[in-house]
Amino acid sequence: MSSTNGQGSENGPGSRIGLSSYAFFWQLSDQVSAPLTLQEALAETAALGVDLFQICDYAPLEAMTDAELAAVRATADALGISLELGTKGIRPEHLKKFLRLAGILGAPLLRTMFNVPGHTPDADEAVAIFTGLLPEFEAAGVKIAVETYEQVPTALVLEVIARVDSPYLGICSDPANTVAALESPREVIDAVAPYVLNMHIKDFAFSRKEGWVGFTYSGAPLGEGLLDYAYMARKLQPKERNINQIIEHWLPWQASEEETIRLEKQWTQQSLDFLRSN
Score class of each variant (00 low, 15 high):
32 V>L: 06
221 P>F: 08
177 N>M: 03
258 E>S: 13
199 M>Y: 10
80 G>N: 11
257 E>T: 08
61 L>W: 01
115 N>W: 11
240 E>V: 09
73 R>M: 10
49 G>V: 07
26 W>F: 14
210 E>L: 11
99 L>N: 05
65 T>Y: 09
81 I>H: 11
213 V>P: 04
148 T>V: 07
203 D>R: 03
76 A>E: 05
18 G>A: 10
222 L>S: 04
85 L>G: 04
229 Y>R: 05
250 W>L: 08
33 S>W: 02
268 T>L: 02
177 N>V: 02
153 P>K: 05
219 G>I: 00
227 L>H: 10
181 A>W: 06
270 Q>Y: 01
252 P>Q: 06
38 L>W: 04
226 L>R: 14
148 T>G: 02
268 T>A: 11
80 G>K: 09
52 L>G: 01
236 L>Y: 00
214 G>V: 08
173 S>Y: 13
265 K>D: 10
186 R>G: 01
143 K>F: 00
104 I>F: 07
102 A>S: 13
269 Q>F: 06
156 L>E: 12
54 Q>F: 09
184 S>K: 13
220 A>I: 03
175 P>S: 08
77 D>H: 06
242 N>D: 14
214 G>Q: 10
185 P>A: 06
181 A>L: 09
13 P>V: 13
265 K>H: 13
30 D>G: 09
120 T>S: 15
269 Q>W: 05
124 D>R: 14
119 H>T: 07
57 D>N: 15
174 D>P: 03
243 I>N: 00
250 W>R: 12
226 L>C: 13
49 G>S: 09
243 I>W: 00
131 T>R: 14
14 G>D: 07
92 P>D: 05
120 T>F: 15
227 L>W: 14
145 A>V: 00
155 A>V: 14
53 F>V: 04
124 D>W: 06
180 A>C: 08
223 G>F: 04
206 F>V: 03
56 C>H: 10
5 N>P: 06
188 V>I: 12
134 L>C: 09
241 R>K: 14
173 S>I: 10
73 R>Y: 09
23 A>Y: 02
263 L>D: 09
254 Q>G: 04
170 G>V: 03
261 I>K: 12
131 T>A: 10
84 E>D: 12
193 A>Y: 05
213 V>W: 12
220 A>L: 10
112 T>V: 02
144 I>R: 00
74 A>E: 14
38 L>N: 01
97 K>H: 12
79 L>F: 02
178 T>N: 13
39 Q>M: 13
93 E>P: 03
96 K>P: 00
262 R>V: 01
55 I>D: 00
49 G>Y: 11
24 F>M: 07
5 N>R: 14
60 P>V: 02
116 V>R: 10
211 G>N: 12
147 E>D: 02
140 A>G: 02
258 E>L: 13
23 A>H: 04
223 G>A: 11
229 Y>G: 06
145 A>M: 00
60 P>Q: 07
54 Q>I: 07
226 L>E: 15
194 P>K: 11
198 N>I: 00
147 E>P: 01
157 V>I: 15
17 I>N: 04
218 S>V: 07
78 A>W: 09
127 V>M: 03
56 C>W: 02
114 F>K: 03
15 S>A: 15
61 L>Q: 01
211 G>K: 12
